[in-house]
Design a protein around this nucleic acid. Structure first.
Lengths: 230, 230
DNA sequence: CTATAAAGTGTGTAAATTACACTTATTCAA
DNA sequence: TTGAATAAGTGTAATTTACACACTTTATAG
């Protein structure tokens, strides 16, 4: 039994990544300056067409890998966009992913198809081509929901971070304010982070303790019916 | 400016629907008996290749429309599956959707490409072809999460339902038990459902009051920061 | 009219969430 | 060296929410 798929069904499929970072109390998104048509010379989400011998997940990881040189990044599929006219050169479906990276740990290098890459504060994103703005909005919503129910905020912070930093991160993403004492109490009571004994250095005020996130803990706690919530 | 997408990137894209129903205290899923290759004569998720002139969402709705004759069904995109070898006839990405339907209101008619369609209790699903089992698991997980945070359970019940019915539905899907008094208290306190004044008829015990879900309420309440949780 | 079956209802206790303000540790500049 | 500036760090009482728990009511069937 052999057969082929009729060519009247054949379209291209791409991946587009919404890469989030956190820096200077701002949530940021990584955009590339397109060096090729269509929409040459526009800022856009980093993405690429999927070649036929590559798994979907793999493609999304490769795009990010080319862009950042990083492995082992938190990624998640968001949604697939497939309006007939979303791409001017033909029918192209795109599978959107989001990624969370530790912005200060790594420098971003533009890939072959991009002339430049840069971080934009989430509220200062320029006009985006295709349906990229819609994708970005989708990603923001997902991030907001997810960060409240899963301990993924730590993916955006350095290995060692202060309680004030994690609180600012939550406040920036959720666009709310938390009471410092209550926030700390709740976060610490989950036993997902521990005091490393280290401290901030060279700050013009009382230095904050540095904590780190214990990845294993969450997996263990989940077994016992624990559910993360902030 | 004109260009085309190289054919080395061209693949097929399909939609597959996980259609849930609830009946006799059981969560059920709708499968079709495939009348065409590949996997002819297997039970599978209803799906179809997307033709190039059709939007993605539209395709998913059409598959369901052909199968059930129904419009206006709750649908949600789940995830996109794109392993290179997931389809024996070539590269086929599939975008999975889930749909919730009121099983008792409508009879299911098999579509052209299916010889038969039938409801299977979620724990008595036969082996499925392609990666359909993986898709189904994904859909079950999503349903479990979603039903706790959004008032979508009502989509699975008749227009008028009893409190016992909605409780059984939650118990079946979440695989837990709820205390009757607490469940009712919480559900009613959300003001999303109202007593219609009607009653069950011809049951061999005290007849239950019939309630209905007020769609508009949820939208209103959301504005004011309300969040559904059960 | 009695048995059966499921519907319907309230209260006290424990746990979680919220509101709220001052003290401490460090750097920098006078 | 000392005081001003800055952000870190900390506890308790009040309120709200979640949880555990058992009997009464209303219908039908025989």
């Amino acid at each position: 039994m052999e057969a082929n798929i009729e060519s009247k069904f054949k379209a291209a499929v791409s991946v587009d990544n919404v890469v989030f970072g956190f820096d200077n109390n701002d949530l940021k998104v990584l955009l590339i300056y397109r060096g090729a048509e269509p929409y040459k010379d526009c800022w856009a989400l980093p993405g690429d067409l999927i070649s036929l011998d590559q798994d979907l997940e793999q493609s999304a990881e490769n795009v990010l890998q080319n862009l950042t040189g990083l492995d082992n990044i938190y990624m998640d599929q968001i949604h697939t966009f497939g309006r007939v006219d979303r791409h001017p050169f033909g029918r192209v479906f795109t599978v959107a992913y989001f990624a969370l990276i530790k912005i200060q740990d790594y420098l971003v290098k533009p890939s072959s198809w991009a002339e430049e890459a840069a971080w934009f504060p989430i509220n200062e994103v320029p006009e985006l081509p295709f349906d990229h703005m819609e994708i970005l909005e989708y990603a923001k919503d997902l991030l907001k929901n997810k960060i409240r129910h899963q301990p993924i905020g730590f993916e955006l912070l350095p290995k060692y971070f202060t309680l004030t930093e994690i609180q600012s991160l939550y406040e920036a993403i959720l666009e709310t304010q938390f009471d410092t004492r209550n926030f700390r109490k709740k976060l610490l009571s989950m036993n997902l982070i521990v005091d490393t004994g280290r401290q901030q250095k060279e700050v013009a005020h009382r230095p904050a303790k540095l904590y780190k996130y214990i990845t294993k803990r969450y997996a263990q706690l989940q077994q016992s019916g624990f559910s993360f919530d902030l």
